[in-house]
Simulated assay, not measured.
Amino acid sequence: MVTHNLERITELFPLKPVAFSMDLTGVSTADMMQTETLNQMIQNRTDCFNGSDLRLGGANLMKWFGNLLTAHLYIFTVHNRWLEYEELRFIEEGKEAHFQLLQPYLIELPVDDRETIGKEKLSQLFSEFQPLFVKIAESSGLSIQQIWGLVTNPYYSRLPSWTDEVENEQLVELGTELVKNLHSDLFGLKRNPFNLTFRYIESWKDANVKIRVKGACCMSFLKGEGNYCYSCPKLTKEARLDRGKQLREINGC
């Protein structure tokens, strides 16, 4: 079952297990704390999308970290296990990327003490990445609020599908509440970034369907030929109507 869960994580998320340290490539999170290394990475992520504003590169880098942290939250919420690994490396593949996990394994959490241990594990996870995220904010020009907002984007995007994998939907609800109730100090913010109240808008495809506005802008409009996402929180009502019309024309709707 544990092996199955590990395989499930690598199917769903941009993560690749590595058995031996000699096979690791890419950049470690420790090296990312070096200003010169991080600056070059953010520049690379900006250049590969033909952009010039480093906020684009920072946001793209956070896309991958957001998926990494969401993988942790998924395995905890759905499978009541905790993901561990010996080392983490970031691998760039043009516009794509992934993380290498050295010797990943899962720890089964006791059901009776799930809330207490889960809170402890989640707190350690976010505290571990907080210093690096501050560096990414400084190097890219993004605010730390948006940095953490970009972490929540993949989490809330994937969350609805998790109820299909559990027999008791309350497990997902309890996991979500635990994340939302973590102290804001863990994130260096005045408010927990996962504790969001979402706005809903009409889909550009079907006015009878409601879709959620993203928690944070992904900065795709800064790409060489980029544009705003229809669900971007930065769009005004008028701009969103224009964007919806444009998307319908592009897709022949």
Rank of each mutant, 00 (worst) to 15 (best):
I201D: 00
G226M: 11
M219I: 08
L178Q: 15
L182T: 13
H183T: 14
Y228A: 12
L178W: 02
V166I: 03
V166Y: 00
K205E: 14
S203D: 09
T176R: 13
E167N: 11
R191H: 12
F194A: 02
K210D: 10
D206I: 06
V213R: 00
A207R: 09
S184N: 11
I211P: 06
V179K: 03
N208F: 09
E202L: 02
F221D: 06
M219Q: 13
T176P: 08
N181Y: 04
K205S: 02
N168H: 04
F198C: 00
N181Q: 14
K210S: 13
K180M: 13
C218N: 07
G188H: 07
T176L: 15
F221Q: 10
E165P: 00
F221W: 10
L196K: 09
R212G: 05
L196H: 02
G175N: 03
F187S: 07
Q170G: 01
D206Q: 09
K214N: 10
K180H: 11
G175E: 04
K205C: 01
N208I: 01
N227W: 14
E165I: 03
Y200P: 02
H183C: 07
S184V: 05
R191I: 07
Y228H: 15
L196R: 12
T163H: 11
N195V: 03
L178N: 14
E167S: 11
G175V: 03
D185K: 13
L189Y: 09
D206T: 01
G224L: 04
R191Q: 14
C217Y: 04
F194N: 01
A216E: 13
L196Y: 04
L182C: 07
S184E: 13
E202N: 14
G188C: 07
E225M: 08
G215V: 06
K210V: 01
N168I: 07
N181E: 14
L171M: 10
L222Y: 04
C217L: 08
E173Y: 14
F187W: 05
K180S: 12
V213M: 07
M219F: 15
L186W: 09
C218M: 05
L186H: 13
T197S: 09
Y228W: 13
D164H: 10
E225R: 08
E169M: 02
F187G: 10
L171H: 07
E202P: 09
L189W: 07
